[in-house]
C-alpha cells in the first residue's frame, strides 16, 4: 500500500517536472486564481463583520420638538412609533438624562462649569427606537419623521443599507470572477495532464495490457494534478498570511474608524490558508480527473 503510494507520488512529481513549462502555466493560473480568492475573502469577510456590527446596533434616535414635551404628547408619539412595522423596542430618555449623560461622558472634570446652564438645557426629549432589520432603517426613519411633534431622527453614522448593498455587489462580482478563474485554472490543468498522458502513452498501453487496475493507471495523473494545485497555493498562502498580518499591524487593526476594525489575524489567516490550499487541491484534482476520464478511455 505504502509502496504503491510512493510510486504514484514519484510518477506524479515526475509528471510535473517533465513538462515544466506547461506545468508552470497551470501552476500560475492556480496561483492567480487563489490570490484573487484570498483578496475576495479578506474583503467580504471583513465587510461582513462591519455590517454585522452595524446590524447589531439597529437603533434610531428620535428627537421630540420642544413644544411637544407634555406627558400626553410623549405618550401619543410613543404609541404611533410602536405601531410602525419593524419596530422592536422603544425606550424613553428625558432631556435631563441626556444632559447628564453628555456631561458625564465628555466633561468629567469640568462638571462645575455646566452647573449654571442647567436651567437652559439644550437637549430634546428623545426615544431610542430599536428595529428589526438594517434594510428598514431609512424607511422607518422617514415614517417617524412624519409623526406630529417629531423634531428629527438619527441613525448610525454610515448608511448601513448602502453597505449591505455594496457587500452584495462585491459578493456577486467576486463570485463570478472566482468561478471563471477557477474554470480557467481547471482547463489549464486539464491540458497539462492531457500532454502528460500522451507522453506516457507507451507506459499506459503496457499497464493496461498486463492488467494494471484502472485506479493504478489513473493515480499518477490525479496526483500530478493535486501537486500542481498544492504548488500553486504556496505563494498565495504565504502572501495571505504575511500580507494580512502586515496590514493589520500597519493600520493597528482599524481602517477609518472603530466601526471598520479588521478581523484579528489569528486564527483568521490560518482559516484562509486552509481554504486556499483546499481550493488549489480541488482545482488540480478536478482538472486532472476530467482529463483522465477523457483521454485514458478506461471504458471500452
Amino acid at each position: 500500500m505504502f509502496r504503491r503510494f510512493k510510486r504514484h507520488l514519484k510518477e506524479g512529481i515526475l509528471g510535473v517536472f517533465r513538462h515544466a513549462g506547461l506545468s508552470f502555466s497551470s501552476i500560475s493560473a492556480v496561483m492567480i486564481t487563489l490570490l484573487l480568492i484570498s483578496l475576495f475573502l479578506i474583503i467580504t469577510t471583513n465587510l461582513q463583520k462591519v455590517s454585522e456590527k452595524i446590524e447589531g446596533s439597529l437603533k434610531i434616535s428620535v428627537l421630540v420638538k420642544y413644544e411637544n414635551e407634555s406627558e400626553a404628547d410623549l405618550k401619543r408619539i410613543r404609541e404611533e412609533i410602536s405601531k410602525i412595522y419593524g419596530v422592536v423596542n422603544i425606550t424613553h430618555h428625558t432631556k435631563e438624562e441626556e444632559y447628564q449623560y453628555y456631561i458625564d461622558t465628555y466633561f468629567e472634570e469640568q462638571k462645575e462649569l455646566f452647573k449654571s446652564y442647567e436651567d437652559s438645557n439644550p437637549f430634546h426629549e428623545s426615544f431610542m427606537v430599536e428595529i428589526q432589520d438594517a434594510r428598514m432603517l431609512e424607511e422607518i426613519s422617514v415614517h417617524i419623521l412624519g409623526i406630529e411633534g417629531v423634531f428629527d431622527t438619527n441613525y448610525g453614522g454610515v448608511s448601513s443599507r448602502k453597505l449591505v448593498e455594496i457587500l452584495n455587489n462585491i459578493r456577486i462580482i467576486g463570485l463570478a470572477l472566482v468561478i471563471s478563474l477557477c474554470s480557467l485554472a481547471i482547463y489549464l490543468v486539464y491540458n497539462t495532464i492531457k500532454i502528460t498522458i500522451s507522453a506516457r502513452a507507451d507506459e499506459i498501453w503496457i499497464m493496461r495490457n498486463v492488467g494494471a487496475r484502472n485506479g493504478y493507471v489513473t493515480a499518477p495523473f490525479l496526483v500530478e494534478g493535486v501537486i500542481i494545485g498544492i504548488i500553486g497555493s504556496l505563494i498565495p498562502v504565504l502572501l495571505t498570511i504575511f500580507g494580512y498580518i502586515y496590514l493589520y499591524k500597519q493600520t493597528e487593526g482599524y481602517i477609518i474608524s472603530e466601526l471598520f476594525s479588521l478581523i484579528q489575524p489569528l486564527p483568521y489567516v490560518i482559516e484562509l490558508s486552509l481554504i486556499l490550499v483546499g481550493t488549489g487541491i480541488l482545482v488540480g484534482f478536478v482538472g486532472s480527473f476530467l482529463s483522465v476520464n477523457k483521454y485514458l478511455r478506461l471504458r471500452r
Partner: peptide, 22 residues
C-alpha cells in the same frame, strides 16, 4: 464490466510485431 477487464487481462499475455518496449 470495464472495471473487471484489468483483472481478466492478467490471464492473457500479448506480444506485437513492434515489441513496444520502454
Amino acid at each position: 464490466k470495464h472495471n473487471k477487464v484489468p483483472l481478466y487481462r492478467r490471464n492473457i499475455g500479448v506480444v506485437f510485431q513492434d515489441y513496444r518496449l520502454l
